[in-house]
C-alpha cells in the first residue's frame, strides 16, 4: 500500500506544482525578505532617485533623464569611469594569472608548500582598510619600506601615492597583493577536481609540463576560472576602502573610482540625483558584464561530472 501511494504521489506531483508553491515560498521567505529589503528595494529607490530632478531652494520636482546628462558631462565622472576600467583590467588579469601560477606551483601537498600557501593567503586575512593603513607607510616617498629597499639598488625616490601618473598603479599593486591569495584558494580547490589519470595519460603520450597545463589543467579549470573572474570583477567595483584611506581619489581625481565618485556626489556635493544616476549606470554595467563573462566562459568550459 505504501509503495503504491508513494508512486502515485510521485506521479501526481509534476502535474500539480502549484500545490507545493506555498511551501517553496515559505522556505524562500527568509532570504527573500532580506534580498527585497536590502538589495531590490534600494535598487528601485536608486532608480527612482536617478530620474528625480530637484532644484536648490525650491520644492519643485520633475522627472526625466537630466541627472544622466549632467553625469556624462562631468569630467570627474568620465575620469572615474576610465580609472575603474584601468583598475579592473589591472587588478583582475594579474591577480588571476598570479593566483593560477601559485595554485599550480603549490598544488603538491608537501609541508613546505603548506607553509607557502599560508604565507600567500595571509593578506586575505587582513581587512583592506588595515592593509591600506599599512601601505601608507610602505609607500612613503624616500623613507618608506619600498623606497628604502629600492634606494639600495640605486633607484630615486618615487611619490607612490602622490604622483598622478603612478598613484593608480600603486593601488592596483596593493589590490593584486591582497586578492591573489584569495583566488589561489579557488584554483587549489579546482585542481583537486582534475582527474589524476588524465595527467598520467598525457605524460605517457609525451606531453611536457606546459602542454599538460595548457591541454589538461586549464580546460578543466574552466568553471573555476569563470567563477573567479566574476568575483574579481565584482571586487574591482565594490572595493574602495584603500582609496578612502590612502588617496581620497586624488591627486586630481587620478585614483577616483566610480564607487568613491558616487560617495562624493552624495555626501560631499549633496547631489543625490547624480549619485543615483552613477549608481544605476554602474549597476547596469556590472550586471551586463557578469552575464557576459559567465556566459562566454561557461560556453568554453568543460564540466566533468
Amino acid at each position: 500500500m505504501t509503495e503504491a501511494t508513494a508512486e502515485a504521489a510521485e506521479r501526481a506531483a509534476p502535474q500539480a506544482p502549484t500545490a507545493r508553491m506555498p511551501l517553496g515560498w515559505l522556505l524562500l521567505a527568509p532570504s527573500l525578505v532580506f534580498l527585497l529589503a536590502f538589495t531590490y528595494w534600494p535598487m528601485a529607490q536608486s532608480l527612482a532617485q536617478s530620474l528625480r530632478i530637484e532644484t536648490f531652494g525650491t520644492d519643485a520636482i520633475s522627472w526625466g533623464f537630466g541627472n544622466f546628462g549632467r553625469l556624462f558631462d562631468d569630467a570627474s565622472f568620465r575620469r572615474a569611469a576610465v580609472n575603474t576600467g584601468i583598475y579592473a583590467a589591472g587588478t583582475i588579469v594579474p591577480a588571476i594569472v598570479l593566483a593560477l601560477a601559485l595554485a599550480v606551483g603549490l598544488e603538491a601537498a608537501t609541508r613546505f608548500n603548506a607553509l607557502l600557501r599560508s604565507v600567500v593567503f595571509f593578506p586575505v586575512l587582513l581587512p583592506l582598510v588595515a592593509a591600506a593603513a599599512l601601505f601608507l607607510f610602505v609607500f612613503l616617498p624616500g623613507i618608506g619600506l619600498l623606497d628604502y629597499h629600492l634606494a639600495m639598488i640605486g633607484a630615486d625616490r618615487t611619490n607612490w601615492l602622490g604622483d598622478p601618473d603612478v598613484a593608480l598603479w600603486s593601488l592596483i599593486a596593493l589590490t593584486v597583493w591582497k586578492n591573489a591569495g584569495y583566488y589561489m584558494l579557488f584554483f587549489l580547490a579546482g585542481l583537486q577536481a582534475v582527474p589524476h589519470d588524465l595527467h598520467e595519460a598525457a605524460r605517457l603520450e609525451g606531453a611536457g609540463a606546459w602542454g599538460r597545463f595548457r591541454r589538461v589543467t586549464l580546460p578543466l579549470l574552466g568553471p573555476t576560472l569563470a567563477f573567479v573572474s566574476v568575483i574579481a570583477l565584482i571586487n574591482a567595483v565594490i572595493q574602495v576602502d584603500h582609496v578612502v584611506v590612502l588617496t581620497k581619489g586624488g591627486p586630481s581625481d587620478s585614483t577616483n573610482l566610480v564607487l568613491f565618485y558616487i560617495y562624493q556626489q552624495a555626501h560631499e556635493n549633496y547631489d543625490y540625483g547624480k549619485a543615483a544616476a552613477a549608481t544605476v549606470i554602474s549597476l547596469a554595467a556590472l550586471l551586463a558584464l557578469s552575464a557576459l563573462s559567465l556566459r562566454t566562459l561557461e560556453r568554453g568550459a568543460h564540466y566533468e561530472s
Binding site: 601608507l136 607607510f137 612613503l140 616617498p141 624616500g142 623613507i143 625616490r157 611619490n159 601615492l161 602622490g162 604622483d163 598622478p164 586624488g250 591627486p251
Partner: peptide, 19 residues
C-alpha cells in the same frame, strides 16, 4: 619641496625622520 602630493601624515613622518 617634493613634487606631487604628500599626505599630512607623510609630512609629519618626514619631519620626525629628518627627511
Amino acid at each position: 619641496t617634493p613634487a606631487g602630493v604628500t599626505d599630512g601624515k607623510a609630512v609629519s613622518t618626514a619631519f620626525f625622520a629628518g627627511d
